[in-house]
Amino acid sequence: MGFMTFLEKWFPMKEIHGSCSIIVDIPAELYYKELALYTGISLLANAIAKCEIKTYVDHAPVKDRDYYCLNVSPNPNESSSQFWHKVIEKVIRGGEALVIETNGNLYCADSYCVKEERPIIGNSYQNISVGNFTFTKTWGANDVYLFRLDNTEIGGLLNGMSNEYNKLISAAAKSYKQSNGSKFKLHIEGAKAGDKEFNKEFEETIKKQLATFMENEYSIYPEFEGYELTSFKESNPKNADDLIKLRKDMFEIVGQALKIPQTLMSGNITNMNEITKVFLTFAVDPLADMIAEVLNKRAGFENWVKGSFYKMDTGKINHRDIFEIAQSIDKLIACGSMCIDELREELGYEALNTPFSRQHFMTKNYEKIEQLLKQMVEGGEMGNE
């Protein structure tokens, strides 16, 4: 989802007919908060969209209809990336996201109502709408997927917090414009100052000429007899440091609320591996766990206990250079931890599905401790010590 599309969802847009220009009618102070929130949501949603949701049947991974629905396309109109972006955005902004399943497809609701709160047997939901379509049926708690990380609406908290920052940003912007704007002083003869005809002429003609003169880079102002136009400069012009600091502070606050490292929010990354670990541990993993838990809850205990369940694999979020991890790959095969096909799938390659690629290998350096002790006893090494 592009940034302009994101803004259209939350702010009124004006289109100029006959051209491609679009005017976003939002106050500057809201722009900072929305840009920071959009950055945080985009980072989290991109990470979740890159995860592989594995489906298991009888404790074995399978690529069935569920796998396709969760990882490729949940419905005819969306890809899985678009779908999970929408889910994550609603979880962060509103505290929860409701997903329904109909005709084998998944849809994230744009709006819905809780028909009845039932703490013991589960709530019921109605007026669930997706786009311009509203379902007439009532949905029970076991019929929907309710993604909720906690009971706090982060979007609401940020809105409350940003009220004071909006005032500061507005004041800083106003001060900057006032001190750095172009100002001129027009000296007029005293006889004309109170003349009604002159006042009318000034409003209709002279002010327009002045505005054109000040707003254009190259322009000429005709100065008539009785008028004198002089530049009026501020004695202490301000720079944009205050605005930059407030913008940075807004990004830091949003980052703290979403558990995202500040270097990721700002884009000034120095240690990618360490930053990614922190990002995955505190920001992404809780969302991934929530998704897996909700999917397994909807599938039910009977399926789960039989070994049919869902699992979020966050291992593919971090970019891997195959040449940098070549020694680690060799070690995983040498110790028998993974076979060749398992490693290929982990690295994003297709499995070979051959007898040798499905075998587990182990070097001669790895032995059972009982076997090693037996060899030491037989060789007399234990007695010598």
Rank of each mutant, 00 (worst) to 15 (best):
A173G: 11
E203W: 08
G131F: 04
Y145M: 06
N199V: 07
E197F: 15
K137G: 03
F198K: 00
K137M: 02
M214R: 10
S111M: 00
F202N: 01
K177R: 11
N151M: 11
S179G: 05
A211E: 10
E225V: 14
K174W: 07
E223M: 05
K185T: 09
I206K: 10
D150G: 14
M214Y: 08
T138W: 03
K208N: 07
E197G: 14
E228Y: 12
A240W: 08
A172E: 00
G194V: 03
L168H: 13
T136H: 09
H187Y: 11
Q126N: 13
G131E: 00
L158T: 01
K248E: 06
L186Y: 11
L157R: 12
S219C: 14
K167N: 11
S182M: 14
E215W: 08
F184M: 04
Q256E: 10
L186G: 10
E117I: 12
G194K: 08
E215N: 13
P237C: 01
Q178W: 12
E116R: 15
F147A: 00
I220V: 15
T138E: 02
T212W: 12
E228G: 09
N142Y: 15
Y221S: 02
P119G: 05
E201I: 04
A141D: 08
K177L: 11
E217C: 14
D241M: 08
E223N: 05
S175L: 03
V114Y: 07
Q256W: 10
K208W: 06
E164K: 12
W139N: 01
T205R: 11
I121K: 15
